[in-house]
């Protein structure tokens, strides 16, 4: 497996772990025993606002740890070089994630149009963001392996 593919795999696993841990934390800290909070817009706003910096910080820390472990195991530095092929793959995968998130956005708005409770919209938005991110990383691995 190439270095880039390893980095992408770490990114996918860390995204899953971060969202799962954050969801469990929020559920146990705020939602367990207080089901009424699910319809509180302030709760969802705070949950979203905190998730973004927490996810970014956690990703950075996980990638630093991965770089250290990679250096110890293989005695090679992680490449930070992005050439034209990397940029093209990045663009194509971003396009996939963009369309998936747009679809999720329309679904979330559709849930409101059909009279579903607000939490359905927020859950759909979080899920579509997560799926878009995973699909984007998966597409990168596909393009690296199969070619452009």
């Amino acid at each position: 497996m190439e270095q880039k593919e390893k980095q992408i795999l770490v990114s996918i696993i860390s995204s899953i772990v971060i969202l799962a841990s954050y969801s469990l934390y929020v559920y146990h800290k705020f939602m367990a025993g207080n089901p009424g909070i699910i319809n509180d817009f302030r709760f969802w706003g705070r949950a979203f606002l905190i998730l973004i910096p927490v996810a970014i910080m956690a990703q950075i820390i996980i990638h630093i740890i991965f770089a250290i472990i990679h250096k110890i195991v293989t005695d090679e530095d992680l490449s930070t070089k992005n050439d034209e092929r990397d940029k093209l793959i990045e663009l194509k995968s971003i396009r996939i994630s963009h369309w998936l998130f747009t679809l999720g956005f329309f679904l979330s708005m559709g849930s409101q149009a059909f009279g579903k409770p607000p939490w359905v919209m927020f859950i759909t938005l979080i899920c579509s963001g997560f799926i878009a991110s995973i699909a984007s990383e998966g597409a990168k691995i596909f393009f690296y392996r199969k070619g452009l």
């Binding site: 490449s79 050439d83 990397d86």
Partner: peptide
């Protein structure tokens, strides 16, 4: 050529 080895391989 200023690219990565993976690009040359591809």
């Amino acid at each position: 050529t200023g690219v990565t080895r993976q690009t040359i391989m591809a």
